[in-house]
Structure formats: structure tokens, C-alpha cells
Design a protein around this nucleic acid. Structure first.
Lengths: 189, 189
DNA sequence: TTACACATGTAACACGTTACATGATTTT
DNA sequence: AAAATCATGTAACGTGTTACATGTGTAA
């Protein structure tokens, strides 16, 4: 049920259309909570039915902008303050790590190098975003400060994953069972 | 499509029943890839139909243990080595951070303290597990070494999130717009 | 006038969760 | 004899993704 609250949260800033919200997911929230437009339009319809949002204006090419209602604002706040955080994670990259022993050492180090580079580049882009915010390039609204905190999480999380992959490169998995080394002092079979 | 590969990966170690696999998800993989038993039994049926696994034995209370086939083993390896990692993340805790500005400072610091404590405790349990593995308490198979690497990720990831929450506590969000401070030198209205 | 970005939506499918149902074996 | 655990499964529902369909306004 996080999508509806994310939509309410975005609409708490200012009115927006399904299209606008879809863009904001692609640009900002999608990194931690992806949502395609069909899901967004569907959820908006339900939110309107339940009076958490209402149509603010209708524009060209049948654009409909929604505004959050008092009821909707109360609902996001209720979610943020009284609903337990769902700490479920789904990280395919970590799932795979449980099966690293099925890869050859070469395949694994190749894989880990790619992963380290990927996470480092994502971390770098969050770092840059955080820097720009600190330099005041996006003004100083509370909304922007919240995104600054989110960017910090993005930086730290991706840096941690990159460092992990690099650490793992230095901890190779020993092959299943090395053929017993030949030792002439042992009695043969 | 990660569930099927996770099941194949587990079965690559040794044969197991749906029940066994369900337990291993709850105990180990569930932290990064949760799966309920209905999903597991369903996927096993499909994997058997496609000859990636086969029934190894039937036990008491109609227990059925599956064994991976050569075809199945080739399929996990193909996944691990040639299929791009899906880096999609879904972290509700980070999604929420984009809406921290909707909480009062008190609510937010309370929230962040809980989060820091939660992640630190999870990190601690991975740290302990990693220590036990390093002390050889689980033997020295390649499978165990892979899980050691996974435990390292669990430690680093959760530690990073805990540190982030602590960092955020020190970076409070300024309220929307403070009522302009009274300055007697300014002309009143 | 053609192409592109805007803007909304439906339909079908895939994936995941919850609730329900059943019965066998082991433990108390 | 009752309770707990083992073990499998179905049904209904909810969420998320992909493909398809449609049309408008703006810029080249």
C-alpha cells in the first residue's frame, strides 16, 4: 500500500496530474519505489473515489490535475507517524551472492568488478546531487531538505554496496574440493 | 523470474522438498528475497514440468524431495553469468524519507531513532553470523563461503542505513516558513 | 505536414500475499 | 488424547509490468 501514500505525499507539495506524478517517479522516487503509469492512473482513480484527492483543474489534451484533500493529508501523516515501516527488501544482487559458489573464480571476479563499478557510479551521482543541494542550487524548502536526506541514503547505500563488492573480490571462494595434492610420503591406494 | 533461479540454486547444493526450501527462504534468503510457500510449491511444479528438477524421493506425509537436473544446473549458471542483474530496489524506508517534511520535528526524530536502532540490531546479527563463519563454526564448504559474503553485505548495508538515520537526526528539517522574527527596527504593518 | 512530446487510459498477464483446507506424524 | 509440527496444496485477492490503443498540442 505504499504507492497511494507516495502519491499523496507528492500531491501534498502541490497539485499534479497523473503524467506529472509518473515523471516524478521516474526521476526521483523510482530509485526506491518504481511505479509505471498504468498503476499510477489506477491508484489516482481510487484515491479520488475515496476522497483523498480531488480534481483541481482540467487542462489541454484532457489533462487532469489533482489536489490533495484534508482527509488525504491526514492519511499520509497517519501513515508516516503510526504505520510500522515495512522493512522488506528485495535485492536481486544480494540474492545472487548466496549462489556465487556456482560460478567459476573468473566469472565471479568479472561479475564483482562490474557490480562495484555500477554501484560506485550510482553513489557518485547521488553524491553530486547532495552537493548541489548543499550549495543551495535547489533553494531551501523543507521538501528539498527531505530529498537531501534521501540523497544521503542513496549515496551511503550504493557506496556500501560498491565497497562490499570490492571486499568480496579480495575474498575468493575456494573451489569445491581441490584434488588432494600429491604427497609421495602418503601410502598410495 | 528470480524465484525459480533461487530455488535451482538451493537445489544445486542438495535435494530438498518444498517445505525445506520454504524454511531456507524464511531463515536465510528471505532477508533479501521473501517467498511464501504457495509461491514456492507453484514454482516447483513448473520447474518439474520444464525438467529443470525431478522428484528424488517421496517420504512420509506425502513429502516430495526434488533434485536438480543437468538442465537445471545449466540454467542457474546461465542466469548467474549471462543475465543482467536487475538493480531495482524497493525500500519503503527510503521512500518515506522523501516525505519527512510532512512530519513534526519530534515525530521525525522519534522515527529516526527507532530506525537507527532497528538497522543496527540487524547489522549486529549479521556481524555475529559473519564472525561465527570466520571462526569455522559452519565448516568450510564453498556454499558456506558464499553465505559469508552475503552476510558481509547484510552487515554493511544495515550498518550504512543505521548510520544514515543517525546522520539524519543531526540534520533536522527546518519548518515550512518560520513566522518572520519580530524586529522593532522594521516598519510594522 | 510530419514528427515529437504530452497525456490518458485499458487489457492481459505475471508475480506475490493471505486465507483457507487437509491430513499425517511426533511430542507432551 | 490433545497439541504441536510437518507437509502439501488451492482459491481469492492485491500489486506490478507489458503491450496496446487513442488522441492532442507544439515545434521542425
Amino acid at each position: 500500500m505504499s504507492l497511494r501514500h507516495a502519491l499523496l505525499g507528492l500531491l501534498a507539495e502541490h497539485p499534479a496530474s497523473g503524467w506529472d506524478l509518473s515523471r516524478r517517479f521516474d526521476d526521483v522516487l523510482g530509485a526506491v519505489w518504481p511505479a509505471g503509469h498504468p498503476q499510477i492512473y489506477g491508484e489516482l482513480r481510487r484515491l479520488e473515489q475515496e476522497a483523498f484527492i480531488e480534481v483541481e483543474s482540467e487542462g489541454p489534451r484532457r489533462r487532469k490535475a489533482y489536489r490533495i484533500t484534508d482527509r488525504g493529508l491526514a492519511e499520509v501523516r497517519r501513515w508516516l507517524t503510526t504505520v510500522e515501516v515495512d522493512h522488506t527488501m528485495r535485492l536481486e544482487a544480494l540474492l545472487r551472492s548466496a549462489f556465487f559458489w556456482l560460478m567459476t573464480p573468473d566469472q565471479l571476479s568479472d561479475h564483482l568488478r562490474r557490480e562495484a563499478a555500477y554501484y560506485e557510479s550510482v553513489a557518485a551521482s547521488y553524491r553530486q546531487l547532495a552537493g548541489a543541494k548543499d550549495r543551495g542550487e535547489f533553494g531551501h524548502s523543507p521538501q528539498m531538505e527531505a530529498l537531501r536526506i534521501a540523497a544521503e541514503a542513496g549515496t551511503r547505500l550504493n557506496a556500501a554496496l560498491s565497497e562490499w563488492a570490492t571486499w568480496a573480490l579480495a575474498h575468493p571462494i575456494s573451489p569445491p574440493e581441490p584434488a588432494a595434492p600429491f604427497d609421495p610420503s602418503e601410502p598410495g591406494d
